[in-house]
Write a protein that binds this DNA or RNA. Structure first.
Length: 805
DNA sequence: GACCTGCTGCGGGGTG
C-alpha cells in the first residue's frame, strides 16, 4: 500500500505537500520538509522512504534510518511507523535499548531503525559498520531545527557524510519547524535537495495576562508570583494547562505557591524540569497524556517530546526570549488537526508588557529567528576521528574528503586537518609522553586504527557532545530517587537545613558518595536550589519588535491591551527622560550617593550589553582614570563610577567631543582587553576538553565529582596555554566565547546602529522606569561577582593541589 | 518604587 492509498483507506485528506515529498523522493531527490507540528510530516516521509526501499533488488539488512533528537520521541515514532507499515520490522536503538535487543541488533539490524545521533555514532564505531549500512536507502532526520544549531547537529552531519560515502545514492530527508534560515538548514543536511513547505493552516491565539493594577506593577524582578491569582484563574478555567517558566528554581517556587494557594490541587498539578529524576518525569508525562493533570509547571523540558493531546492551554511566565521558542511552546497546546493552539503570556514586570506586545506582532509577521550552524568545531572532529578509527579504520586523504563534504567542515584547511590528526595520533605537542592520548595509529598500509581495546571502550563511553555539569543525586534516606542538584548548592547547606526541591520541602541529612540524603520536612520552605544554567539573551527579532512598539508609543499610538496597560509607565519615562526607539539612543546620567550613573537602552540582548558595557568602561578608562561597576539586562546597561564623568559629551558626536566610544575600530582587541576573556575561555574549554576526549567522565554509575572534572580540564587549559599556545582547541574556546557568549557580530551591528541613531541625553534626578530594573540587577550582580571570585580562588587552590609535589 | 532567575538534549560491549 502506498501513502496515497493508506491515507484514502483512513479517510484522510492528502495535502499537496505530502504529494510533493513523494514525487521528489520518487525522482531520487533529497529534501527538507518544514511544517508546523501535527500536519502529518511523519507519514509523508515514511511512505516516501517505504517506496524508496521497495526499489532495492535484494533487500537485506537496514534500509531506513530515522534519527530523532530525543529518546522519548522514539517510542512515539515507532508506534506511528508500525501503524503505517505493520509488515515492516522497525526497532529503536538508544540508550534505553535492552542488552538483549542490542545484541540481536549487533548481529543483524532491522529493516528500519529509529535512533539518536549519539547511538548512530556508536554504531559507526563498530568495525563492521560499513557492511551493516550497506543497504541503506534513506535517512530521515526528525526535528532538525533542534540539532542544526549545535554540536549534536555537527555530529549528525559527520555521520551522514560517512553514510553517503558508502551509499552515494542515499536519500536524506530532514523534518523541521519553520526557521529564519531554511536554506542553510537544508545545506547543512545535504549537498543538493529541495525545500518543501508543509503549510497547514493552524489557528494560533496568543494573548497576555494583564495585571489588575498596571500602575502598581513592579518595575523590576522576574519571578512574577504577584500574578498568582490571575494564573490560578486561568488554570481553573481550562482542562489542562502547561505553565512554562524560564528556570528550574522558578518552576519549583511557582509550583509551591500554587499548592499553598490551592491545597485542593494536590495530586492534580505537577512539576517537571530537567533536574528531576527520570521516573518522576515519566510519571508526570503519563499523567499529562492521560488527561489526569490539571496543570504542570515546567521548563524547556516539555518543549519537545511526546504529544500531550489533552493540553488546552499554555502559559508562559516571564520573557519568552524569542519568537521561535514562543511558537514551539504555543504548539504544545491544541495538538491535533483543526484544534487551536492557545498561549498566554504572563509578564513578571512592567517592561515585559512591552515585550509581549512586540512578540504578538512578530508572531503575526512570522519574524522567526535563524539558527546559525557551528563552523568547523575541532573538538567534534577530534572525537569523530577516533570513532572512525574504531569503525574499521581510515586512510587520511579519504577521510579528509569525506569530512569536508560535511557542511560545517567545508572550509577545513589542510593545516587544521593535520593538527587534528596529529592530536589524536600523538597527543599533540604536549601530551606525547602519555600513551592514553595516542589514540589512533597508522598500520603498515597507512590505515589509522585504535591500537588498544581499553582505549576503544573508553572512547565509546564518551561519544556525544552534550556536556552536563556534574551534580549530586538527591535521594530519600529511606530510598527513592528525587533528582539532582549542583554540588555548590549542597555545599552551602548544613545538616538539618530545609530546602525546596522536586516540589517538596526536604531536610538535608547527610552527604555520602556523590549523593545527598534527605527526608521529608514540614514548615519553612528554606532555600531553593539554583542551577548553573545558560543565560539566553533576548533575540534580535523580539528586541526589534519591542523597539517598534516604543516608536508607536512615541507617536501616541498605544495598540492592544499590553500597550494600554503600559501607557502610565511610559508616560513617566517620557516625562523624566524619553523613549528609546530604533531612531533614538536614550542616555540618562544621574548623580546619587553611590556615584555617577550612566543608563543606556540599546535593546540588543544581555550578551551584547555585557560586551558594550565592558567596552565603554575600557575606552573611557583609557582617557581618564575611572573604575566602574556595571549592570546589564536584555534592554540596556548601567555603568556606575565613583568619579564624575560627562557622559553627554563623551557619547555625543554632535558636540565634537566624541572620542569614539561607539567605534567599531579595534573592536576585537578592545573587547578582549576589556573583559576577562581568558577566564571565559577557560570555562568554555571545559566542554571542549570533554568532547575532544581529554577528560574522561568515568564509567557509568560512578560519576566523578565536578571538582575532579573541573580540575583536570583546568589543568589541560593551563598546560596548553603555557607550552602549546598553537593548540587549536584553545583557539576554538576563544572563538566560541566571542561568537556565542559575547555575540561579537551582533555587538558590531549594535554599535553601527547606535552611531546612526540620534542621542537623546537626559540628566535625571532619580532612576527612570527603564533604569530602575538595571539598578536592581546591579545589586544581584555584585553578589554574583563575589561568588565568582570565590570560585576562582577555589579553582586556583585545586590547581595547586593537582599540580603539587 | 532596591531582588528570591538563569534551559534542554545523550551515552558500553560481549557472551553463553
Amino acid at each position: 500500500m502506498n501513502g496515497e492509498q493508506w491515507f484514502a483507506a483512513r479517510g484522510w485528506t492528502v495535502f499537496p505537500f505530502q504529494r510533493e515529498v513523494w514525487d521528489a523522493a520518487a525522482a531520487g531527490r533529497s529534501g527538507l520538509l518544514h511544517a508546523s507540528t501535527g500536519a502529518g510530516k511523519t507519514y509523508a516521509v515514511w511512505f516516501a522512504a517505504l517506496e524508496r526501499a521497495a526499489t532495492v533488488r535484494s533487500p537485506a539488512g537496514l534500509r531506513i534510518l530515522w534519527i530523532t533528537p530525543m529518546r522519548a520521541l522514539a517510542a512515539d515514532t515507532l508506534r506511528a511507523l508500525q501503524e503505517a507499515a505493520p509488515d515492516w520490522q522497525v526497532e529503536v536503538r538508544s540508550g534505553d535499548t535492552s542488552s538483549a535487543q542490542r545484541a540481536r541488533q549487533n548481529k543483524r539490524l532491522p529493516d528500519a531503525l529509529i535512533t539518536t545521533p549519539e547511538s548512530l555514532t556508536l554504531l559507526l564505531s563498530h568495525a563492521d559498520a560499513a557492511e551493516r549500512f550497506r543497504h541503506l536507502q534513506m535517512v530521515i532526520i526528525d526535528e532538525w531545527h533542534e540539532l542544526m544549531g549545535n554540536k549534536r547537529g555537527v555530529q549528525t552531519q559527520l555521520a551522514l557524510a560517512r553514510l553517503r560515502r558508502w551509499q552515494p545514492g542515499l536519500l536524506v530527508w530532514g523534518l523541521s519547524a519553520t526557521l529564519g534560515n531554511l536554506e542553510c538548514a537544508r545545506q547543512a543536511l545535504m549537498p543538493d535537495g529541495v525545500i518543501v513547505e508543509g503549510h497547514v493552516a493552524k489557528p494560533l491565539l496568543i494573548d497576555t495576562l494583564i495585571p489588575a493594577a498596571p500602575s502598581r506593577f513592579p518595575w523590576g524582578g522576574h519571578l512574577g508570583v504577584h500574578m498568582l491569582a490571575p494564573v490560578i484563574d486561568e488554570i481553573e478555567r481550562h482542562s489542562t494547562t502547561l505553565v512554562f517558566t524560564n528556570t528550574r528554581s522558578q518552576a519549583e517556587l511557582w509550583y509551591q505557591h500554587l499548592l499553598e494557594a490551592r491545597p485542593d490541587w494536590a495530586g492534580l498539578i505537577a512539576l517537571h524540569h530537567g533536574s528531576l529524576d527520570k521516573e518522576v518525569r515519566e510519571w508526570v508525562e503519563l499523567g499529562l497524556k492521560q488527561g489526569q493533570l490539571k496543570a504542570v509547571v515546567c521548563t524547556s523540558s516539555l518543549d519537545l517530546g511526546v504529544d500531550f493531546l489533552p493540553v488546552e492551554r499554555v502559559l508562559q511566565i516571564g520573557s519568552a526570549k524569542g519568537i521561535a521558542r514562543l511558537l514551539q511552546r504555543a504548539g504544545r497546546s491544541g495538538h491535533a488537526p483543526g484544534r487551536v493552539s492557545r498561549l498566554t503570556l504572563v509578564p513578571t514586570q512592567s517592561l515585559e508588557l512591552l515585550e509581549a506586545a512586540g512578540a504578538i506582532q512578530a508572531v503575526a509577521a512570522r519574524d522567526i529567528e535563524a539558527r546559525p550552524v557551528p563552523h568547523k568545531p575541532l573538538d567534534v572532529l577530534v572525537q569523530h576521528l577516533v570513532t572512525i578509527a574504531l569503525g574499521g579504520g581510515f586512510r587520511a586523504p579519504e577521510l579528509l574528503a569525506e569530512v569536508r563534504s560535511a557542511w560545517s567542515y567545508r572550509e577545513l584547511s589542510d593545516e587544521e586537518w593535520q593538527w587534528a590528526l596529529d592530536f589524536v595520533a600523538r597527543g599533540g605537542q604536549t601530551l606525547e609522553a602519555y600513551p592514553e592520548y595516542r589514540r589512533v595509529l597508522p598500520d603498515d598500509e597507512g590505515v589509522y586504527r585504535v591500537p588498544d581495546v581499553a582505549l576503544g571502550r573508553r572512547h565509546r563511553m564518551g561519544i556525544g557532545t552534550i556536556v552536563a555539569d556534574a551534580s549530586l543525586q538527591v535521594k530519600y534516606v529511606s530510598g527513592g530517587r528525587l533528582g539532582s542538584v549542583e554540588e555548590s548548592f549542597i555545599a552551602r547547606l548544613r545538616k538539618g537545613d530545609h530546602f525546596l526541591f522536586a516540589g517538596r520541602i526536604l531536610e538535608f541529612v547527610r552527604l555520602h558518595e556523590m549523593t545527598a540524603y534527605v527526608r521529608r520536612a514540614t514548615g519553612a520552605r528554606g532555600a531553593v536550589p539554583r542551577w548553573q544554567g545558560g543565560r539566553m539573551p533576548l533575540s534580535s527579532e523580539l528586541a526589534h519588535a519591542a523597539l517598534a512598539q516604543l516608536a508607536l508609543a512615541q507617536a501616541g499610538r498605544y495598540e492592544g491591551p499590553e500597550m494600554q496597560a503600559l501607557k502610565p509607565l511610559l508616560a513617566i519615562q517620557q516625562r523624566w527622560s524619553s523613549l528609546p526607539t530604533a531612531q533614538d539612543t536614550v542616555i540618562e546620567a544621574m548623580h546619587s550617593r553611590e556615584g555617577w550613573h550612566l543608563f543606556m537602552f540599546p535593546f540588543a540582548g544581555r550578551s551584547v550589553h555585557l560586551g558594550l558595557a565592558a567596552l565603554l568602561a575600557y575606552r573611557v578608562g583609557r582617557q581618564q582614570p575611572a573604575t566602574f561597576s556595571m549592570a546589564i539586562n536584555d534592554y540596556g546597561l548601567e555603568l556606575l563610577s565613583a568619579q564624575p564623568l560627562d557622559w553627554g559629551a563623551l557619547l555625543d558626536a554632535g558636540t565634537g567631543a566624541d572620542i569614539g566610544l561607539l567605534s567599531t575600530e579595534h573592536l576585537l582587541e578592545d573587547v578582549l582587553a576589556s573583559l576577562n576573556a581568558s577566564e571565559m575561555a577557560q570555562r568554555r574549554f571545559r566542554e571542549i576538553a570533554r568532547i575532544a576526549g581529554l577528560v574522561f567522565q568515568g564509567y557509568p554509575g560512578q560519576g566523578r565529582s565536578a571538582r575532579q572534572l573541573q580540575a583536570s580540564s583546568s589543568l589541560f587549559f593551563a598546560v596548553f596555554s603555557k607550552h602549546d599556545a598553537g593548540n587549536l582547541l584553545l583557539t576554538q574556546a576563544q572563538r566560541e566565547v566571542l561568537e556565542q557568549e559575547l555575540e561579537l557580530g551582533r555587538l558590531r551591528a549594535t554599535l553601527l546602529d547606535l552611531q546612526a541613531r540620534t542621542v537623546r541625553f537626559h540628566a535625571i534626578k532619580r532612576a527612570t522606569p527603564f533604569g530602575f530594573a538595571l539598578m536592581v540587577e546591579r545589586f544581584r550582580e555584585k553578589l554574583s561577582t563575589e561568588k565568582l571570585s570565590d570560585r576562582v580562588s577555589r579553582l586556583v587552590r585545586q590547581l595547586e593541589r593537582a599540580a603539587g609535589p
